[in-house]
Design a protein around this nucleic acid. Sequence first.
DNA 1: AAGTGGTCTAGACCACCGA
DNA 2: CGGTGGTCTAGACCACTTA
Lengths: 247, 247
Amino acid sequence: MTLNSAITSGTRRSGRARWADIADALRARVVAGEWKPGEAIPAESALAAHYAVALGTMRAAIEPLVTQGVLERVHGRGTFVREGLSGHGLERFFRWSGEPGRMPDSRIRSIRRVRADAVVARALELRAGSEVLRIVRHRSLEGQLILHETLSLPLKKFAVLEKQGLASIGPLLYPEYARVAGVTVHRAVDDLSFASLGTRLGVAFGLPATHPAIRVERRAFDLAGDPVEHRITWGDAHQFHYRAEVR
Amino acid sequence: MTLNSAITSGTRRSGRARWADIADALRARVVAGEWKPGEAIPAESALAAHYAVALGTMRAAIEPLVTQGVLERVHGRGTFVREGLSGHGLERFFRWSGEPGRMPDSRIRSIRRVRADAVVARALELRAGSEVLRIVRHRSLEGQLILHETLSLPLKKFAVLEKQGLASIGPLLYPEYARVAGVTVHRAVDDLSFASLGTRLGVAFGLPATHPAIRVERRAFDLAGDPVEHRITWGDAHQFHYRAEVR
DNA sequence: AAGTGGTCTAGACCACCGA
DNA sequence: CGGTGGTCTAGACCACTTA
């Protein structure tokens, strides 16, 4: 071994890069709640000293977490734990006749406790028959139903929501999850498909049962990667629009 | 100014970071065709010497081009200009009854020269009435039409394709563009919406004119950012499926 | 063995923010 | 002003690929 190798240069014990190990450690600390969403983590220099690495290595460790949306750098202020999903509501799959900026209003139709069917149990990683909180929600524009949503939430994390009055729940659900239940939604997967509304939903929309519809099935996850929401959203297929960019 | 400042440390004349300027310069050289797709660019050390910066700075300049998909790093071999779009065909929006791995076969129905309508002219940034190459293509599985495609290509870049026989065009178009016309597709934007097939397409699919369909309108761009293809693809809505991930 | 990209260091200065 | 992230340097060693 050369004279300087252990002093000046990186010496990797394992096959893993040091920055990758530190990135994992940081992620774990965020997941463990050591720093809450919205809070700043220690300065890069402090972290570098703590992990006994150079600044550049520390920055390399932070970078993937920024890319993954866990952390957010703000020049001159600090590095912060992100608050959660932003601006990716299911409205983005649909366009309304009016101005694109208009957001539909939200009305909770019911909140009740039900036993999860096989699909929901699988999505939420629960045993079939476990109890979940079932929320039905209508989103409308000028009195016309636009989106029909059926949500299932694991009772374990959302028990407090059941006791909460319906009126006190705001139009944006995820901030509400954070405020009331302390759950941060960090990632979601949407599966889109096509079907007819069917009789039940047809009545709700005031459209024929044969009317074409787009169905969006969403699974949402928290920072730890645990599923925290299953949601099925229906909307008029004629108002469907989505832009996908590929590279 | 401190003694060492101009020697050891970065001195930025403009407000722009040096790595950003070099990134732009590299991109321009790729676009200009100095290194062709599939070829390697000079080694990081050589480029660093050429631009008179440290290795770290040179790597920082290369990074965004890798992220944008212009370049591709291969450890131990070099840094290469990417060949183009890979594995993002429009089939990804649909699922067939059989195994998911099955690719539909491709048949060119017609290639002819037409005048661009307003939509196509706008998409390809041509004057309305300019001539384009119009290709109609069927993609089928077991004799059943699955996707109906109407492509419009700017004649200026694709004139050679017109003289080419229909039989010699392979199932994957983009490699064919590169081989025959020297056009590399680097980025594409897909706009999805819903509509009925209509009489003309209904006949092609062997379905009623009222049958629900998903319509995908694609604009494809080359490395320089110029539009090189406009494509409208139709498929059975019942076979539509798409997964979108949000973070 | 030679050449390439990947990791890491120690230290300097720059740009931005808030008290 | 002091603290934060952002840029940059010069140089060493590590890991992978090819010949």
